[in-house]
Design a protein around this nucleic acid. Structure first.
Lengths: 202, 202
DNA sequence: CAGAGATTGAACGCACCGTCCAACCATAGA
DNA sequence: TCTATGGTTGGACGGTGCGTTCAATCTCTG
């Protein structure tokens, strides 16, 4: 980044205080961040060029964590289904563990996406792992031949929508149950199993 | 709404001028809307309580159109797959036909969703039709037993993400091709067909 | 033609952002 | 111990865009 290197202490204090219950970038007032984090406003401006850069730092940190978490989870499985399940589960778990930042990011993709580092972070943490699994899965014959970009985006959209929905309406995510259902859906679709069987019904 | 009834002329002029290339609510300045639509700022405030209400009107109008369009499309098919395909296609087509308002809405769900009418409109235009098809499809045995809310949200998320992705990166949507691919994905999932066949591989 | 309501220009106050600066503090090296 | 360097902070300021207000038209309708 173009900004000054951010001390450890600041980073942690921001992570806790910056994105509390905000649903909008405008909900985050610099003065509030200052109070919530215990860092004076002038100091915030000493380290960040503005609110945008500050939130970019917070959100980017969250995305970096997610990227790492996804990479680890994904390495635990061999087959396409297992790896996809691990990735989706890790993503949902991260949304559940960082509800504030997640909400703020996903409900404000317009503001957030215009920050290069954020757009790149979303791709690295959400799209890229899925894309890779799909490509390899198709090559291995585990997956049907499909448009990788469309499928990658569809997986991203469904994970994010389902996670966000849970966060907003239930205030949290039942990660295990939700991940299992979502993965079943992504893997097999919504159709009743066995097209012949269905056609043979009375 | 609590606001004054909006004359036809205003509505059309707003639809064309209000959401142009904006990616953020802040990108839409009242003065700009005034110039773009030819309606003086004071007149805008005469009809709308503020920017939020004005954008709510524009976005809600778009969602109402989509709801109607989806209802018509959905009525053209009988079976679950055909109806779902019709709905998804209509949704993508509407995004393609209203890129400005769609972008603004979907990239700012935080701002937009806090407006009751918008949240309701999203449910009516995106979720409800899918939810109904899923429920009836499960009952009819065309669909596997699944968590309707999760599946509904997943469909919504994938449609919106794929549509938005196309709008942003390609500047438009190839509705037919995209809809077909997306529906295939939702219907059958990503797994290679025939679980036995796959399991039988060396 | 009078009154009601629509329409508009202009000026204002407000909230919050971002900038600036002077003062202070901590500490590393002389 | 002294001092220079750089982090840290409070406080004041200007700018932008929103929303309000009001008086001055304009346009119907009866």
């Amino acid at each position: 980044m173009s900004t000054r290197p951010v001390p450890e202490r600041l980073a942690t204090q921001l992570a806790s205080g910056a994105s509390g219950f905000a649903v909008t970038f405008d909900d985050v007032r610099m003065e509030d961040v200052a109070v919530a984090s215990g860092i004076p406003r002038a100091t915030l401006y000493y380290y960040f060029a503005g609110k945008e850069e500050l939130l970019a730092f917070v959100l980017r940190t969250m995305l970096d964590d997610l990227e790492a978490s996804v990479a680890i989870a994904q390495g635990r499985a061999r087959d396409a289904r297992g790896r996809l399940a691990a990735v989706v589960r890790a993503q949902l778990a991260h949304l559940a563990a960082n509800p504030g930042a997640s909400r703020l990011l996903l409900l404000n993709l317009g503001r957030a996406g215009r920050i290069g580092a954020i757009a790149a972070g979303i791709d690295a943490a959400f799209h890229a792992p899925v894309r890779q699994i799909l490509i390899q899965g198709i090559e291995a014959g585990d997956l049907v031949a499909l448009d990788v970009e469309v499928a990658t985006t569809a997986v991203y959209g469904s994970v994010v929508a389902v996670g966000l929905q849970a966060l907003l309406s239930r205030g949290g995510i039942d990660v295990d149950a939700t991940a299992e259902r979502l993965i079943a859906l992504l893997w097999s679709g919504i159709a009743a199993p066995g097209p012949e069987a269905r056609r043979a019904r009375p």
